[in-house]
Design a protein around this nucleic acid. Sequence first.
DNA 1: GAGACGATAAACT
DNA 2: GTTTATCGTCTCT
Length: 199
Amino acid sequence: MTFLGVMVMDKLDREFFLRDTLIVAKELIGKYIIKEELIVRVTETEAYIGDIDKACHAYGRKRTNRTETLFMEGGAVYVYLIYGMYYCLNFVTEEEGNPCAVLIRGVEPIEGLDTMSNYRYSKPYEQLNSYQKKNFSNGPGKLCKALNIDKSLDKTSLINGEINVFENKDEKVENIKTGKRINIDYAEEAKDFLWRYYV
DNA sequence: GAGACGATAAACT
DNA sequence: GTTTATCGTCTCT
């Protein structure tokens, strides 16, 4: 148990990630991701289920060097590069051999503002304009930059690794909305799955 | 506040 | 050699 100001935080155990991917994606909303001294709150997630999801890298249980992480037991960290310049942070779910994950699409910064701001814009948080603050970590590539996440964290553990996920038991997360996923028109029918969650 | 568009490198075939 | 799918910048309202 960790005390963060007045909040009492409990670390999520492996069981949390071994459940249905859609449940994990929904319940990750409002949880806290802690890396070193940096803390962010999850505001948007998206589920990826390899077996039935054409947008998933491991669709059809396709095993390649990159997708190998998705086949690991739930609770692993999956990081991949997109557009040749941005990283995306995912949490692997379900049992070993079932390639599913939850993509973290958006977070809000809680602790370590200046450190994150330096990673993101190379300047203190106070010097950011309102546009930069608004777009600080509201996208998968942005939050990775703010948290200094790169491929070296791929395949690491959420249970005993550098990245940990906590929940605040006193906090009720309400108004979780669902929606279609984004930027995956190529996935045909899978693009209409209501697998995106946000507040 | 919202829409258009180009940048870029790794994974894969 | 082909595919991939976000961010920053610019533009207009």
